[in-house]
Design a protein around this nucleic acid. Structure first.
Length: 482
RNA sequence: GGCCCGUUGGUCAAGAGGUUAAGACACCGCCCUUUCACGGCAGUAACAGGAGUUCGAUUCUCCUACGGGUCACCA
């Protein structure tokens, strides 16, 4: 039987990369064996519902290439795929569970429930309504008392299941709370509806974060109560973030950009993000390669490569991955990706292409483009006495002016303002003056850019600037040096 | 606090009783070079601690410590 997996996010308005990784693994697991990947929207919390949030989810899956076979917009034989549209189903199954003796009505007020909790907020339900008589239940129902439906946990014994990653997980049944299955507002809780849906949708492998590791026995019990076959559970190690104080905890906003959209906006590439998070908690067998397309991941993905211990999200390494991906882009692809990050500029098309080719190997995320190319647009105010001297090229404040004057002569006579030609001409000039080519090139580059570190060498910068602007900038430098 | 899970260099990680304990990021050095970056080469750095089991434990068991997760009418 081919595996059926699902990604079942809540529409919270943004896609956390931890969630995205869960989606990725679920996708890879099913696709590795040609199975089915389902998208299901878990929107049963009406208070947290965010307008348009479902679109964010769909958009993210589209960009990343995690195409789902069944879901809200693509349909499928197990729909609807939005939980708020499945309410009658949950009611039916809740009723059935009561009849089966594994659930019961609870009429306790929220006030009463709160009084049960200690000052630390920890404390469970005292099962007050667990043993109401049918008469008492009917009376409350007739009165219209608001109620919830709770799962009736076994009072003794042990419930265990085998997780594909963590192995056997056992819990004493006395540790299990009679958790709420149906809320007073008629909506189901996650604890209930995800089980119903997973079963009804034929999900064979439940892939999710390991924050569910300890509550899964309760879900397993639900499967058992209905007489359904339990799915294979695959809990994933958590993605952690390191705070400024050095402590680690579940990756959250205080650790930096954690939503897929925020990462994109910061100039990270979708492919790089996917590649990086794939390797956070999973390691392909039999290869040291770290670069994978989605197709390659599908081919090599196996559950036994999934790690048990949580992993700290390392922005440094993501940045490195991103830089690698940027360097591997075709000039055309890079241009397309870079355009939204360029901002206002006056570069003509041909010059823009050259600038981009200079910048592409030197940035690690697209948002770094602007600062890199700023000097092309306007010459920064710079301190000549600090920038010109350079020991390696034997440039001093004293000879810089002469070198620049010589360069100016050469450049003003240059028939063609192209990098290669200028490089040759300046080289010849250096030879004539018996100085290192580097000396003259250094001076020119500083004058042309006004900064010590630039994308591209001196003559490439000159070509982009053009003859007039280049000479202007050299004159400016000469003024500063005198 | 109860319960559950985890622990290999700063980070991600390979490893499956006998290895010089891989590799990647970061860092450091050198080379290349028209600055920087890229690229190439080299280097620093790890099995949390203690008991067992075993001829032999990073690897198996137990304990401790530390870290994390979970105990909602959130998912």
């Amino acid at each position: 039987m081919k595996p059926v997996t699902r990604f079942a996010p809540s529409p919270t308005g943004y896609m956390h990369i931890g969630n995205l990784r869960s989606a990725l693994y679920a996708f890879l697991l099913s696709k590795h064996e040609g199975g089915t990947f389902i998208l299901r929207i878990e929107d049963t919390d009406r208070e947290r519902f965010v307008e348009g949030a479902t679109d964010v989810i769909k958009e993210t899956l589209k960009i990343t290439g995690l195409t789902y076979d069944e879901g809200p917009d693509v349909g499928g034989e197990h729909g609807p795929y939005i939980q708020s549209e499945r309410l009658p189903i949950y009611r039916e199954y809740a009723k059935k569970l009561i009849d089966l003796g594994h659930a019961y009505y609870c009429f306790c007020s929220k006030e009463r429930l709160e009084s049960l909790h200690g000052e630390d907020g920890v404390g469970g339900y005292d099962r007050h309504c667990r043993n109401l008589t049918q008469e008492e239940i009917d009376a409350e129902l007739a009165k219209g008392t608001p109620y919830v439906i709770r799962q009736k946990m076994p009072e003794e014994g042990v419930t265990s299941y085998v997780d594909a990653v963590y192995g056997e997980i056992s819990t004493e049944n006395k540790e299990l709370q009679d958790q709420i299955l149906m809320k007073a507002d008629g909506y189901p809780t996650y604890n209930f509806c995800h089980v119903i849906d997973d079963h009804l949708m034929g999900v064979t492998h439940v892939v999710r974060g390991c924050e569910y590791l300890t509550s899964t026995p309760k879900y397993a019990l639900l499967y058992d109560a209905y007489g359904w076959e339990r799915p294979t559970y695959i809990h994933l190690p958590l993605m952690m973030g390191r705070g400024a104080d050095g402590t680690v905890s579940k990756l959250s906003k205080r650790h930096g950009a954690v939503s897929f959209a925020a990462l994109l906006a910061d100039g990270y590439l979708s492919e790089a993000i996917i590649n990086y998070i794939a390797l956070l908690g999973w390691c392909p067998k039999g290869t040291e390669n770290e670069f994978f397309t989605l197709e390659e991941m599908i081919r090599v993905f196996t559950v036994d490569g999934i790690n048990k211990s949580s992993a700290v999200f390392d922005y440094e390494k993501l940045l490195w991955f991103n830089g690698e991906y940027i360097r591997r882009m075709t000039p055309m692809a890079f241009k397309e990706a870079a355009l939204p990050f360029l901002g206002e500029h006056s570069l003509p098309e041909d010059k823009l292409d050259m600038v981009l080719s200079l910048v592409q190997p030197r940035i690690e995320k697209l948002s770094q483009i602007r600062e890199k190319i700023g000097f092309f647009l306007t010459l920064p105010d710079y301190d000549a006495t600090a920038l010109f001297p350079n020991k390696k090229n034997k440039v001093t404040l004293e000879n810089a002016k002469d070198l620049l004057l010589a360069a100016r002569d050469t450049l003003s006579e240059a028939p063609e303002f192209k990098s290669d030609a200028l490089f040759a001409a300046l080289g010849a000039k250096a030879e004539e003056l018996a100085v290192k080519a580097g000396a003259i090139l250094w001076c020119v580059r500083i004058a042309a850019s006004g900064q010590a570190v630039t994308p591209g060498g001196a003559t490439e910068i000159l070509e982009v600037l053009g003859k007039d602007e280049s000479l202007l900038r050299i004159d400016e430098a000469l003024k500063k040096l005198s």
